[in-house]
């Protein structure tokens, strides 16, 4: 691969030619930083009275809306005193059962997928370790995406990992047979039906949270 040794020149002459991080980009960064700092400062200076007043108005509005909207759908939660919807009730039930069994519940965000709950990461890291030691396991992962609830199963039989995905946002919903967990994230590699080098996402996480969970273990 002699060509690779001259990659820098090659890229500069071809794909990177005419592109750069110019003055306008630099100006935008300074402006964004200044406005960010400004925003933080104004937030700090906001008078307490104003915050209290807006909180009171919000609480009143929330009370009125929830009482109108949820009266026919949900009921009063005795522990918190709040009205909860049917979906929330269903989700609470799933969380309760999953916690009892020690299973992962992952809350996916429609806009920005990574779910960085350290508890989940620690659990998944334990599974990863089991797989490395050749110990079989089987578990269900529950996903909440808006009002929808999904359940994926992941099983290791001592030889391969069988992962059943039902969440379209994570990849094609089907059953994958995979060789191992990928190196630094909760993904599976060497899966059947997936192009070589591409991984299958199990629990989306940010790398910094992953490192935090790894350090905590």
């Amino acid at each position: 691969m002699e060509e690779l040794k001259d990659l820098r020149n090659h890229m500069k002459k071809t794909v990177f030619n005419g592109h750069g991080f110019d003055k306008s980009n630099r100006r935008i960064v300074h402006q964004r930083y200044k406005s960010m700092k400004m925003e933080k400062r104004t937030k700090r200076r906001r008078p307490l009275v104003m915050t209290a007043a807006s909180l009171a108005v919000c609480a009143l509005l929330f009370f009125l809306t929830t009482s109108i909207v949820t009266d026919h759908k949900g009921k009063l939660d005795p522990s918190s005193g709040k009205t909860i919807t049917k979906t929330e009730m269903k989700q609470q039930q799933i969380v309760k059962e999953a916690t009892k069994k020690g299973e992962v519940v992952s809350y996916l965000n429609e806009k920005w997928i990574p779910d960085s709950k350290t508890k989940n990461l620690e659990y998944m890291l334990r599974l990863k370790k089991k797989e490395e030691q050749g110990k079989p396991f089987k578990t269900t992962i529950h996903y909440f995406l808006g009002d929808k609830v999904y359940q994926n199963t992941i099983e290791y039989n001592g030889k391969k990992i069988i992962y059943k995905n039902t969440v379209p946002a994570l990849g094609e919903p089907k059953t994958y047979e995979c060789k191992a967990f990928s190196d630094s994230t909760i993904q599976l590699e060497g899966c059947t039906g997936v192009k070589e080098g591409y991984d299958v996402l199990v629990v989306p996480v940010t790398l910094s949270d992953m490192r935090y969970a790894e350090a905590k273990q």
Binding site: L108, N109, E110, K111, W112, I113, P114, A169, L201, P204, T206, L207, S208
Partner: peptide, 11 residues
């Protein structure tokens, strides 16, 4: 890290 996180996003 930032680019990898972005690539994983639903957006």
């Amino acid at each position: 890290n930032h680019c990898r996180d972005y690539i994983k996003s639903a957006h």
